[in-house]
Amino acid sequence: MFKRNDLLNYLKLNNFLEGTTEQVVGFLLSKLLEYYRLDWALVGTVDQERIILHYSMNIPAELNELESTTAANNPVGLILQGNEPLIINDLKAFSPQNTETPSAFTQGTMLGYPLLDQQGNHLGVVALFGRQVSRVTTRSMDLLANYSCRISLEVDNAHLHAKLGKLKDALEKYTVTDRGTGVYKRSFLSEKLEHEFRRAQRYGRPLSCVMFAVDNYNEFIQRFGINFTNCILKEFSKLLKSWLREIDFVFRYSTSEFFLILPETSMEHSFLLAERLKYKIESHRLPVKEIAEQNESMVFSEKIKLSEEEIEVKVKMGLSSYPSNNVTTSAELINLTDTLLSQHRGTNDTYVN
Rank of each mutant, 00 (worst) to 15 (best):
F2W: 09
N9D: 14
K12R: 04
K12G: 00
N15F: 00
F16V: 15
E18C: 05
T21N: 03
G26T: 05
F27V: 11
L28Q: 06
L28V: 02
L28P: 04
L32P: 03
E34H: 14
E34Y: 08
Y35W: 09
Y36T: 01
L38V: 05
L38R: 02
A41Y: 02
L42H: 08
H54S: 08
Y55I: 00
S56A: 13
E62K: 14
L63T: 08
E67T: 04
T69E: 14
T70N: 07
L80Y: 04
N83G: 12
P85S: 08
D90N: 14
L91H: 13
A93N: 15
T99Y: 03
T101V: 15
P102K: 06
T109Y: 14
L111N: 06
P114S: 12
Q119F: 10
G120T: 08
N121K: 15
H122T: 03
F129Q: 10
S134W: 00
R135V: 12
V136F: 01
T138I: 06
S140C: 00
S140D: 05
S140Q: 00
L144E: 01
N146Y: 01
R150G: 00
I151M: 07
S152F: 05
L153V: 07
A158I: 02
A158K: 09
L160D: 15
K168H: 10
A170F: 13
K173A: 14
K173F: 07
G180W: 10
G182Y: 05
S187H: 14
S190K: 15
S190G: 14
E191I: 13
K192S: 11
L193H: 10
L193I: 10
E194Y: 11
E194Q: 13
E196T: 11
E196C: 12
R198G: 04
Q201L: 13
P206A: 03
L207P: 02
S208C: 09
V210Q: 07
I221Y: 14
R223V: 01
R223T: 07
G225S: 10
N227E: 14
K238F: 05
K241R: 13
W243M: 04
I247D: 15
I247C: 13
R252E: 13
R252S: 11
T255C: 00
T255I: 03
T255D: 09
S256E: 08
I261Q: 04
P263C: 11
P263G: 07
T265E: 11
S266W: 02
F271M: 01
L272R: 04
R276M: 02
R276L: 09
L277I: 02
L277S: 01
K278W: 01
K278C: 00
I281R: 02
H284I: 11
R285G: 10
R285V: 11
P287S: 07
K289P: 02
E293P: 07
E293C: 06
E296A: 05
S297E: 15
S297Y: 15
M298Q: 14
S301Y: 03
S301A: 06
E308S: 06
E309I: 04
I311K: 08
E312K: 06
L319M: 09
Y322R: 03
N325A: 13
V327G: 01
V327A: 03
T328L: 09
I334D: 14
N335H: 15
T337F: 14
D338C: 08
L341C: 06
S342G: 03
S342I: 04
T350Q: 03
V352C: 11
